[in-house]
């Protein structure tokens, strides 16, 4: 779906956003961010909570001398943060593309 002149090299004008649609987009982005930050908080607080609740978590051995707790904190959480970040950034960008601007600007699918 493109305009009549898809090959044009004119970047066009700065198309302004309407205030009410920006408010809507910000609200939706806030929902997304709060949802993700809850997941983040639960995950990151679950580690110390499990440490206190389950002796097995820090006492047993998964890989050689490492306990599940050690593996999680030494590597697992970084991978989790990255995964969370990629998911959140992609979602935020797609939602932005769909809630603001005209349909031809809908963000390129990553």
């Amino acid at each position: 779906m493109a305009r009549q002149d898809p090959g044009s090299e004119d970047p066009g004008w700065l198309e302004a956003d309407g205030p009410s649609e920006v408010v809507a987009a910000a609200k939706t982005q806030r929902r997304i961010a709060i949802g993700y930050v809850l997941v983040f908080a639960i995950a990151i607080l679950a580690v110390p909570a499990v440490t206190v609740a389950l002796p097995w978590w820090s006492g047993s051995r998964l890989l050689g001398g490492m306990s599940p707790s050690f593996v999680t904190v030494a590597g697992g959480l970084y991978a989790f943060f990255l995964f969370l970040g990629v998911a959140a950034a992609r979602l935020a960008r797609r939602v932005e593309g769909q809630m603001l601007g005209t349909s031809e600007d809908e963000g390129p699918e990553p």
Binding site: V23, K27, T28, I32, L91, V95, Q98, M99
Partner: peptide, 12 residues
């Protein structure tokens, strides 16, 4: 005055 309240999941 128009207020939108759109769930991100509904967009697609």
């Amino acid at each position: 005055n128009v207020e939108y309240d759109i769930d991100p999941a509904v967009l697609g």
